[in-house]
Write a protein that binds this DNA or RNA. Structure first.
Length: 742
RNA sequence: GCGCCCGUAGCUCAGCAGGAUAGAGCAGCGGUUUCCUAAACCGCAGGUCGCAGGUUCGAAUCCUGCCGGGCGCGCCA
């Protein structure tokens, strides 16, 4: 089933060619929903624009177009679709869909597949409402990078938008028939990682000394006290910690204790986190003091404020001497993934451990990436190094050393820098620090290569043999994910980074590689704004720390639970149905609470910041999850109460409210297309809100179970069924459960 | 300093590949329940779309300048 807008679009495109020949080819018919019900259902605004190019009066053009459409001719396909169009104002063509068409289109929607109530929100909903996937020729492989939590930290509000928006986009694109590859770019290789490992080491030592379980928390508050007491107290405290640290190293230079500890350690994030925070706090406090310890192998002095860096260096250097660090690292990842998995399941987010390709996954490609940049982007700009970016601008990239760091300078063809720093000097993309360490830009280049490359469809020619080998080692079979479209669901502040990254990739020519038939790769930064508190500053807990996602969700569910309780009590027996059991209340509170948090985020325009408000997201009125869920529950209630079925009864759109509801239902498909091209989930939210509003109006005006006659009754039931299924499907694509009762 | 984003009703926000009289929700005022869930529905009131120019048959939407706010800007991610 195609949506009305799509049908109109196709018919108008044909008519444009028929009426105006070449001049009408590839002209967008500009089919839009009517701005006012009096003007019909849709309108075409193409005539006014065409007036200039054709040198004719817009109303004449509109008339010619209508003649070419052939409405009213018995043999014209358009005749069953619309009433004869009217020309209005300067040349608007007003279109009114025929009632018979609407009724037939709605009646032809296949019944919901049996088995009905799917508990999980699967990637592909069982009930498609007759909506077909996009044409085979338009299907793409879409790689979507979202969520990307940091292993060293617990998930917090900062991860909410990426996780939720990314998941919805993934669901919508998959529903449209695209091959979606989710990627969770876990932050598992950064500097903070040394702190986690070091924290685990401290846990080990504390345990051996027989200290209490909350050792880390105690040390943290001791440190805070020493800090506020001033310089000398802090120095004394840090010196004590240093001595303790050194004593432990001396006691067990081979790390036998730590190795044993790791073998039996059941990693739990609740223990890891305070230990990490402790190390973090100690190191930042120690920066101002000249304290050192001898490193694990006892060969050199290490600054006490930089022990974790040293651990990172050991970890990243590789080799069997550092197995211990590697093992600790694996355990920490394990713990983090389990914590993330719990959050994802609760959020009904599709990400699994199979989608994780963290920073560490790419780390051995990094030297090859730098070599590739050096070979492909020589200082004397070769032709290959200049290309039109996806924005259509020309970019030229030059890779050279600067101050000991390896840099990519992006330039316009005449050599002026594309990006500048605060001092007005060219701002490069730095891919290797002067100390030899790699940065996230390097990892992002490696990840992008992996995501686009495909041995068969899009082999990317690489000059660096070591990079070729490293890429092949990652995915020997396919040589990469073969993405035609690579999406990065990452916050707005990183816009500059992605501009530079994409410009570099374009200059390397990776997006244009592969067989001629392969589409050019589109790289897109799906940017989003921040979550703000009522004070319009980034949303934080009262303590000033960012809010843990787990706490946020707990509170949402608790608030929803109170509402369920209140409401059930107020309703009493009035509704003539059994009160909700505790288990039902729990389930409803969970769905409503989580759904409200998600919906409040998704219904905002992705690009803008939004103010987090419990009252608004849990409100029953307005564009909220509870409102939509209520509309769905109300419909299901009709079926429950009437023990009714409607099977394949023909739809009748007699009443204006019936027609309006039917029209909305049919517009679901075109809404999805809009979401997949703009990647704006709020368009889907707006649609669902309007759909629910149309249902509410219908509900007030058109009795269903008490309909005047049986024919009307079953027709209305069928319309209700379609409305409920559309709501359920739409909510499902947002990763929100629809409820039977609430 | 440079770059990006934002400024729409008292408040929070939609609308911005230009289209007819700019929409929601909240807050305010007034209605609706012997009737399928009132966690609802309906009505009223509320706007020089930051300001000034420009392009256009037509601008909240595109361009330029200004004012106000946010974010970003080489070896963090």
């Amino acid at each position: 089933m195609k949506s009305p807008a799509e049908l109109l679009n196709n018919l108008f495109a044909e008519a444009l060619r028929a009426a105006f020949g070449e001049a009408g080819r590839d002209v967008d018919p500009l089919i839009r929903p009517a701005t006012d019900p009096r003007f019909g259902d849709y309108q075409s605004n193409v005539a006014m624009g065409l007036a200039r190019t054709l040198g004719r009066r817009p109303r004449d053009i509109a008339q010619a177009l209508i003649d070419a459409l052939g409405v009213g001719r018995a043999d014209a396909r358009v005749s069953y679709l619309i009433e004869p169009p009217e020309i209005a104002g300067p040349g608007f063509i007003n279109l009114r869909l025929r009632r018979e068409f609407l009724e037939a289109a709605l009646s032809s929607v296949p019944p919901a597949p049996g088995g009905a109530e799917d508990v999980d929100l699967a990637e592909l909903p069982a009930d498609r409402l007759g909506i077909e996937p996009v044409d085979e020729s338009l299907r793409r492989t879409v790689v979507i990078d979202y969520s990307s939590p940091n292993v060293a930290k617990e998930m917090h509000v900062g991860h909410l938008r990426s996780t939720i928006i990314g998941d919805t986009i993934a669901r919508v694109l998959a529903f449209e028939g695209h091959r979606v590859v989710r990627q969770n770019h876990l932050g598992d290789w950064g500097t903070q990682f040394g702190m986690v490992i070091l924290g685990m080491w401290h846990l080990c030592k504390a345990e051996r000394r027989g200290e209490p379980e909350d050792w880390s928390e105690r040390r943290l508050s001791e440190l805070a006290a020493a800090r506020s007491a001033g310089g000398d107290a802090l120095r004394a405290y840090l010196t004590r910690l240093r001595d303790e640290h050194q004593a432990e190293l001396d006691r067990d230079p081979a790390g036998v204790e730590f190795a044993a500890f790791l073998r039996s350690f059941a990693p739990r994030l609740v223990r890891l986190l305070p230990a990490y925070q402790f190390v973090n706090a100690v190191e930042s406090a120690a920066e101002d003091f000249d304290l050192t310890v001898v490193d694990r192998q006892n060969n050199k002095q290490v600054k006490f404020s930089a022990v974790s860096n040293h651990v990172v260096a050991m970890l990243q250097r590789g080799g069997s001497a550092d197995d211990q660090e590697r093992q600790a690292w694996q355990l920490a990842i394990r713990a983090s993934l389990e914590a993330c998995g719990a959050i994802y399941r609760r959020l009904c987010v599709l990400l699994t451990e199979g989608d994780v390709r963290g920073e560490s996954f790419f780390h051995d490609m990094l030297p090859g990436i730098v070599e590739e940049l050096r070979l492909s982007l020589p200082a004397r700009g070769a032709d290959e190094a200049a290309a039109t970016g996806s924005t259509g601008e020309w970019v030229r990239a030059v890779c050279r050393d600067d101050g000991g760091a390896v840099c990519v300078f992006l330039e316009t063809p005449d050599g002026t820098p594309r990006f500048k720093g605060p001092d007005g000097e060219p701002l490069p993309l730095i891919v290797r620090k002067s100390d030899g360490a790699y940065l996230y830009a390097t990892t992002d280049l490696a990840a992008a290569l992996y995501r686009m490359s495909d041995n068969r469809r899009r082999p990317i020619p690489l000059r660096s043999a070591s990079l070729r080998a490293a890429l092949a080692a990652r995915d020997p079979h396919h040589g990469g994910l073969g993405g035609d479209r690579v999406l990065y669901v990452v916050g707005m502040p990183q816009k500059l980074h992605f501009e530079m990254l994409f410009a570099t990739i374009e200059a390397l020519g990776w997006t244009r590689a592969g067989e001629p038939a392969a589409p050019r790769v589109r790289l897109e930064h799906v940017a989003f704004g921040s979550v703000l508190g009522e004070d319009r500053k980034p949303y934080r807990a009262r303590s000033g720390e960012s809010v843990r996602l787990k706490d946020l969700l707990d509170e949402a569910v608790a608030r929803a639970r109170r509402l369920v309780e209140e409401n059930d009590a107020r309703r009493g027996d009035d509704a003539g149905q059994a009160p909700l059991s505790d288990a039902e209340k729990d389930a409803i509170a969970e769905a409503v609470g989580i759904g409200s948090v998600k919906y409040a985020d998704l219904c905002q325009n992705r690009g803008s910041d939004y103010v987090f408000s419990w009252d608004k997201m849990l409100a029953m009125q307005g564009n909220t999850a509870p409102y939509l869920m209520y509309a769905h529950a109300r419909i299901r209630s009709i079926f429950r109460k009437g023990a009714a079925t409607c099977d394949d009864a023909p739809i009748v759109l007699e009443h204006a409210a019936e027609r309006a509801l039917g029209m909305r239902i049919l517009q679901f498909g075109e809404t999805l297309s809009a979401v997949s091209t703009t990647l704006l989930p709020n368009l889907l939210c707006d649609y669902l809100y309007e759909l629910a509003g149309a249902f509410m109006a219908f509900y007030e005006n058109c009795p269903v179970l008490r309909a005047p006659d049986e024919e009307t009754r079953v027709a209305r039931l069928r319309l209700c069924d379609l409305a409920a299924r559309t709501l359920k499907l739409g909510l499902g694509l947002l990763g929100i459960r629809a409820l039977q009762r609430m």
